[in-house]
């Protein structure tokens, strides 16, 4: 057992395909969840600025609940809790649901800030032309809001990509889980876990670069 804490290059090369597949699952689950979260977050974000008290308070309570509880607990509620009320989801859909519900709340706050970053005169100009509230939102406010929050959404994607490692607790074979499995069968910790970390970095670093680039472009552009 001398090699327990040693890096093993041969093993590293051998496990690369498994890690790559785990990374693929991680990216897949995160991407689906962020897209669904964007839909949920857009609706909730509109709720957070709604004058309708019901819509507002439901959205606000939801966002507060999600942001005030750990993602790990949310994942376990969805996976172990929902079957108790008759909703039995396989691990992957449960994982996607949990990540969607979670990111939806964070994206809601991003969208709210984005909508509020658009000057009031834009909505007034749109309404004065006879557009409905929803038309004004869709064609005038959202395109500007979305552009303004693109970097924040990128950061949310990166955060979710890392947080998705928690899905390993419900036996989804994403990147972290794959690393853990290799560790438990080879009893070599360094090699798979270093590999896991490297794979996360290979995904997050280019993404943060992209976000920084987008931020600079948007900052340098005349919007108003």
């Amino acid at each position: 057992m001398a090699g327990i804490s040693q890096f093993d290059p041969q093993l590293f090369v051998k496990i690369l395909p498994s890690l790559a597949y785990g990374a693929y699952i991680t990216v897949k689950l995160t991407s689906i969840s962020i897209l669904l979260g964007l839909i949920l977050g857009t609706i909730l974000g509109m709720g957070r600025i709604s004058k309708n008290p019901l819509f507002f308070s439901i959205s606000t309570s939801y966002v507060e609940f999600i942001r005030g509880t750990p993602l790990l607990v949310q994942i376990m509620i969805v996976y172990y809790g929902l079957p108790a009320i008759g909703l039995n989801l396989p691990a992957e859909p449960a994982g996607i649901l949990a990540l969607t519900l979670n990111s939806g709340a964070y994206i809601a706050e991003i969208i709210r800030a984005g909508i509020q970053s658009v000057p009031k005169g834009q909505m007034e100009a749109a309404r004065s032309l006879g557009m409905t509230y929803l038309q004004s939102m869709r064609y005038v406010i959202f395109p500007q809001a979305f552009r303004n929050v693109l970097p924040a959404l990128g950061n949310e994607f990166i955060a979710l990509l890392k947080d998705s490692s928690l899905l390993s607790v419900i036996a989804i074979a994403e990147l972290t889980r794959v690393g853990k499995q290799i560790y438990s069968t080879t009893f070599n910790a360094w090699t798979p876990l270093l590999g896991v970390a490297l794979f996360y970095l290979m995904m997050t670093l280019p993404l943060s670069r992209l976000v920084n680039y987008a931020q600079r472009r948007i900052g340098g552009h005349e919007l108003a």
């Binding site: 000057p119 005169g121 834009q122 004065s128 395109p143 500007q144 552009r147 919007l223 108003a224």
Partner: peptide, 12 residues
Amino acid sequence: GMVFQQFNLFPH
């Protein structure tokens, strides 16, 4: 029709 002091053109 309404025209505003700050123009309020849609920048995008």
